[in-house]
Amino acid sequence: MTDRQSIYEAIGGIDKVDELVDRFYDLMVLEPNFGDLRAMHPQDLSNSREKLKFFLTGWMGGPDIYSPKYGHPMLRARHLPFKIGLKERNQWLACMYKAMEDCCIEGSAAKQLEESFFNTADWMRNHPN
């Protein structure tokens, strides 16, 4: 990854974002240790998948495709109806980190994403435990 290259470009663009998000939600469904995380989502995950794909595309430095369709992300406000404590944060992070590993996102891009995901997930917490 170069100083001028976005994470989006470094990991492979939209195809890799799609792969990452699909793997994330597949793991959430398949792995029992992500059950609490899965329970926070609707039965049909297609809208959740699309929103996360669109959001991550812009968040990683790719084109802004989320805002024109859904408005400002207002990430924390949109998640306030859900109890997000340490357990929920940690499940989300473990699921995303495993998805990154399974999608072969490595090196400095992976390190930067892991740090950014942690900071964002921790900021989303709205419950002390």
Rank of each mutant, 00 (worst) to 15 (best):
K98H: 08
M60D: 03
P42N: 09
Q112C: 12
E115F: 09
D64S: 09
L56E: 06
K87Q: 13
M40F: 02
F34K: 02
V17H: 08
K98A: 12
I105K: 04
L75D: 00
C104V: 12
Y97E: 13
G13N: 11
D26E: 15
P128I: 02
R49I: 10
I14E: 14
L113M: 15
M74K: 14
V17N: 09
G58D: 03
F118I: 07
R125H: 03
L30C: 11
R78H: 11
L56F: 10
W92L: 08
D36E: 10
N33M: 09
L56Q: 06
H41T: 04
F55R: 07
I11Q: 06
I11E: 06
F82W: 06
M74V: 02
M60N: 06
W92R: 06
E88Y: 06
D3F: 10
K69S: 02
G62V: 09
Q5C: 09
E50W: 11
D64T: 05
A77C: 00
S48Q: 14
L75Q: 01
K111T: 14
M60L: 15
E106Q: 15
L86T: 14
L45D: 02
D18E: 15
R89G: 03
Y97Q: 12
S116Y: 07
F34P: 03
R38S: 01
M28F: 01
K98D: 10
Y66G: 02
D64E: 13
M1L: 09
D3P: 14
D15M: 07
K69M: 05
H127S: 08
P73H: 01
I84P: 04
T57N: 10
P73L: 00
S108M: 10
L20M: 13
L86D: 14
Y66K: 05
L37Y: 01
D22V: 00
M74R: 15
N129S: 14
V21P: 07
G85I: 00
P68N: 01
N47K: 13
M1P: 15
W123I: 02
H79G: 02
Q43Y: 08
R78F: 01
A109S: 14
K83M: 09
V17D: 07
C95K: 03
M1V: 10
L20E: 04
Q5R: 10
I7W: 06
R89A: 04
S6N: 12
